[in-house]
Write a protein that binds this DNA or RNA. Structure first.
Lengths: 344, 344
DNA sequence: CTGAAAGCGCTTACAG
DNA sequence: CTGAAAGCGCTTACAG
C-alpha cells in the first residue's frame, strides 16, 4: 500500500493544533507533559494526536531547546564484532539506557583517518559525548570539540596530547604478570606474539614482557619476538614459524585475543598444545573449554565500559573536576595452558 | 581549561558569514561544496570557518532539507554482545558506511516492550530506516512509520502482521538437517534443548526437530525435550538432568549458540563429550577448536546483515517493489561432535 | 491557563 | 555569482 501511494506526509504539531482547535504552543505543552493545561484541551490535543498518528520530531525540538542535549552518544570501537569491544559496547548501552540516551556505534579498524572521520561525523550530529577506543596516537584534534562541551572518555587506550578522562588497564603490569607466571613454571625461552607497534597497548604489553625478563636478569631473545600480527591467520603462521626454529620457545605470551586464538590453532595443528605453555592477554569466550584451558590475563570489558559511560554521564551532568584516569585491574586466570612446566 | 571557563559557544554559519564579510547563504554554499562560488569569496569563507573552528550542524540542515534523510539508521538486536548479533552488526555498519550513514544500536533482550520503546525513540529521531531482529510477535504497530517512508528490514525473525522486507534462514529445514544428521549416525534418542517458545525461531527449530522424526516414522520422546532455556547455565543444568534419566539420550540437538555452549560444559563436566553426540544450531567462535569439534548448522550472520542493509538502502533509494523475504541457506558443518555413532 | 511572536541553524525558493 | 526572505518543526520568552 505504502509502496503504491508513496510515503504519506508526517503530521506536525501544527496539524495537531489545527485538528484540536488550539494553538501550536498548547500542543507543545501537552506533548511535553506540562501540567498546567486545561484537562479538556489536553484531551482534545491527545485525541487529535492519536488520530493523526502524531510523533514528535526530536531533532527539531533539540534544535531550539536550551540544554543543547541530543540524548545520543557515540561509541567508537576497534571492531564492534570483536568480543572485547562487543562486551564493552553492551555495558555502555546499559548505562546509556538509564540516561534515556541512544548509542551510535562505529568501528575504527585501527585506522587513524577513520577515527577522525567518524568522530567528526558524530560531532556534526551533535552527540552529547563520545566513548572512544582510539586508533590514532594524537588526539589534539579533539580539543576544540571537548572545549565546546562534548563529553569525551577514552577506553582501553589513553588519550595522547589531550587532557581527557580515560578507563584503561595496566598493560605493562598485566603483561609482566603473564610472563612471570610462565617463568615460575620454569620457562625462559618465552616467545612474544603481538600486534603492530603503532598500537599503544601493543607497545605497553611488549614493555611488560621485557620488564619481566629484566627483573629475572634474563635476556630477551629477539628471535622469539614477533610483532605486527594483525589477524588470527598471521598469528597462526608466526607461531608455526617460531616452533620451527632450531631452538624453539617452550612457552608463548600472546598479547591479544585474536593472536591467542591463532596461536592455539597452530599448537593444535602441530599437536603441541600440551607441551608448549601459553598465556594470552585478553580473555575470550570458551577459553576455559579448550583442552588444555587457556590461561589468560583478563580485562573486564563490562566493567571498563560501565565505568567509562558513568564518567561520561557525570560530565554531562556538570562534573567539572580534573580529568580522571581510571586504571582497572587485570587478573590472571590459570586454566592449564599457562601451567605446563618447562622441559628439563 | 574548559573545566574552568565552561563550554565555549559554538560558531554558526552566521558567525562565519560575519567574519568573512559575506552572506549566510554564501557560507552555506561553500560548506556544501557548491561550485558556483567566486573562488575569492570561497577562500575568505574557508579561512573564517577555520579560524572560528566552525563545524556544520547536521541536525539543523536535516530539518530544512527536502530529502528528509538524516543519514542515520537504527539496528535493533537481540543482544549486541552475542556473537551472532555482533557479526551481523558489523556487516550492517560496513554497508551503512558506504552510504555515509551512521548506525544507532540497541539491544532488546527478547523484551517486546523494549522493542516498541526503542523503535519509537529511533523514529522520533527520524532514522531513515531500521534493521530489526524483533522480540515481539506483532509488528502491526510499525505500519504507520513504515508508511511514512521509514525503511524497515527484519532479520533473523520474520515480521508478523506486517508486510515488510526480511532476511531470515529456514529454521525448520536447518533443524531438520541437524537431527537427520544425527539419525544417520544411528541415533534415535535425540534430545531437544531450546529457548522459550515465545521466540519464533525456537518454535521453528523445534518444528524441524519433530519433522525429522516424522519423516523417519520415529516418535518423539517428550521426556527428551527441554524448552525455555534462557542462559548457558540453564542449558548446562538441563543437559545434566537429561543425561541422568533412566533412559538418557544418545545425542543432543541444541537449538541456539548459548545452549550449545551450556550443553558442551555439561558434557565435559560429566566426561561424556566423546560418547554423547551433539549438533548445535548457530556457529560460534572456537567451535572447531573444542575437542571434539562441535558440529553445527551455521547461519551466515555477516551475509544476513549485509543483505538486510542492502535491501534497506535500496528502499531508501526509491525501490518500491513488493516486500522481499530473502531466505539464506544454513549449512551443516561436521566437526566431530555430530559424527559420534550411537551405541549399539 | 493560553497564545502570537521570535528564533534554534540551516536550506529552499526566489530575485537580482 | 550573490543575497534577502521565508520556512523546516519545534521551544523560548513574553504578553495577555
Amino acid at each position: 500500500m505504502s509502496a503504491a501511494s508513496g510515503p504519506s506526509a508526517r503530521p506536525t504539531m501544527r496539524d495537531v493544533a489545527a485538528l484540536a482547535g488550539v494553538s501550536l504552543k498548547t500542543v507543545s505543552r501537552v506533548v511535553n507533559g506540562i501540567a498546567t493545561v486545561d484537562p479538556i484541551l489536553a484531551t482534545k490535543v491527545r485525541n487529535a494526536a492519536d488520530k493523526l498518528g502524531y510523533r514528535p520530531n526530536m531533532t527539531a525540538s533539540n534544535l531550539r531547546r536550551g540544554d543543547r542535549r541530543t540524548g545520543a552518544i557515540g561509541l567508537l570501537l576497534q571492531d564492534a564484532a570483536n568480543p572485547f569491544s562487543a562486551a564493552l559496547m553492551r555495558a555502555v548501552e546499559n548505562v546509556a539506557r538509564t540516561h534515556q540516551t541512544v548509542v551510535l556505534v562505529g568501528s575504527l579498524d585501527d585506522d587513524p583517518a577513520r577515527e577522525r572521520e567518524l568522530s567528526s561525523t558524530l560531532f556534526d550530529r551533535r552527540v552529547d559525548g563520545l566513548v572512544i577506543m582510539p586508533s590514532s596516537d594524537d588526539h589534539a584534534y579533539l580539543m576544540a570539540e571537548h572545549n565546546a562541551g562534548t563529553g569525551l572518555v577514552f577506553v582501553d587506550r589513553s588519550p595522547k596530547h589531550l587532557n581527557a578522562d580515560s578507563v584503561t588497564v595496566d598493560n605493562v603490569a598485566g603483561a609482566a604478570a603473564a610472563v612471570e607466571h610462565l617463568m615460575e613454571h620454569g620457562h625462559r625461552r618465552i616467545a612474544f606474539l603481538g600486534d603492530v607497534l603503532a598500537i599503544m597497548t601493543a607497545v605497553e604489553r611488549f614493555d611488560g614482557y621485557r620488564r619481566a625478563f629484566e627483573r629475572r636478569g634474563v635476556a630477551v631473545d629477539s628471535r622469539l619476538v614477533a610483532h605486527g600480527l594483525r589477524s588470527i591467520e598471521a598469528a597462526t603462521s608466526a607461531t608455526s614459524a617460531l616452533l620451527a626454529l632450531p631452538e624453539p620457545p617452550t612457552a608463548l605470551f600472546t598479547s591479544q585475543n585474536l593472536i591467542t586464538i591463532g596461536a592455539c590453532r597452530a599448537l593444535r595443528a602441530l599437536g603441541r598444545q600440551r607441551s608448549v605453555a601459553m598465556v594470552g592477554f585478553d580473555d575470550f569466550p570458551l577459553a576455559d573449554m579448550l583442552d588444555p584451558g587457556v590461561t589468560v590475563v583478563a580485562q573486564d570489558a563490562e566493567r571498563i565500559g560501565r565505568l567509562a559511560a558513568e564518567i561520561l554521564f557525570s560530565r554531562l551532568d556538570g562534573d567539572r573536576s580534573p580529568a580522571r584516569n581510571v586504571v582497572v585491574d587485570t587478573s590472571l586466570i590459570p586454566r592449564g595452558s599457562g601451567e605446563i612446566a618447562a622441559p628439563l
